[in-house]
Amino acid sequence: MSLSDLPLMTYLANAVDILLVWYVIYKIIMIVRGTKAVQLLKGIFVILIVRLISEFFHFQTLFWITDQILIWGFLAIIIIFQPELRRALEQLGRGKFFSRSGLREEELQEELVESIIKAVDYMAKRRIGALISIERETGMGDYIETGIDLDSKVSSELLINIFIPNTPLHDGAVIIQKDRVAAAACYLPLSESPFISKELGTRHRAAIGISEVTDSLTVVVSEETGSISLTKNGNLHRDLSKDTFREMLSNELIVSPTVKQASSARWNWRGKRHG
């Protein structure tokens, strides 16, 4: 290797180094997304800004306080972020940290859709009320914390058993993250829109409410009529047939991002606004 090749190798090494750092940061963001860690990171960012301001204006006491917070902050982060750190280490131990996240994504999405359709069809025929919210880009960590943690693989049998009347978890909503039932008996915000039909109950109001503040997809099975409804972006699609429900759910959860954008556009004019 000639001396002229050394700068090129240095540049390549630096480029690889930067890409690896950005990839690790990206994976960390994906792990903490939708959890309390996001708010805590914002708090740390505020502390850094305060420290810079106090240093610039020579606020000695404030600078000393923020400096102490940052010095001891590492230990505090380990304690506060313990669940997220544990999750990251578990993924690293299973070899998933640097794995291709989209390798089995479509297969998992298809399994998720089939499980939900099977469960919803069963409950609709027997008029078992249900409320299932599927997390997408917007984290639903705050709503998950209002319920009972499950962290179980999604299956039609599990969903049906959760919503069987008079069981401990049948009240409230089930929240699904990827292919996992994150929690059951969760409280969702009720929509305050005056345009909601009076014949709609609490489940439909909660489904519309959560779709107004997140990009989640929420399924409702009416306890009174057994009808199936779907909400997204504040729009309520009511009285869906099994085939229509399958088509809409598949379009939203399985298809490519380009088709999803087209599907979202169809929601805007096909959806019945608040029933």
Rank of each mutant, 00 (worst) to 15 (best):
P257C: 02
P189F: 04
R246Y: 10
R126Y: 04
G34I: 11
G226T: 06
I228E: 09
W269G: 00
C186D: 05
G234F: 02
Y11V: 05
K96G: 11
F97R: 02
I53A: 14
A15S: 14
G209Q: 01
D215K: 01
I116P: 06
L190W: 01
I47Y: 04
D215L: 04
Q82V: 05
L108T: 02
Q177M: 13
V24A: 15
R33N: 14
L159Y: 00
K260V: 09
L249G: 07
I77K: 12
N235S: 07
K125D: 11
T61E: 11
K125N: 09
T225Y: 06
I117P: 05
L249C: 09
I78R: 07
I47P: 01
G234E: 03
A183S: 15
S250T: 14
I164Q: 14
I31G: 01
H237Y: 12
M248F: 13
D121S: 15
E199K: 13
V255R: 08
D215F: 04
K178I: 07
D151F: 03
R127D: 08
I77R: 09
D215I: 04
E212F: 01
I47V: 15
L200Y: 04
N233V: 03
S191W: 01
D5Q: 14
T231E: 01
K232T: 12
T138V: 14
R86V: 06
P83D: 03
T138Y: 08
G102K: 10
L3C: 01
P168D: 09
Q68H: 10
R136E: 13
V38K: 07
G271F: 11
T10N: 14
K272F: 10
L62R: 00
G102C: 06
F74N: 10
F45W: 05
I53F: 15
I116H: 02
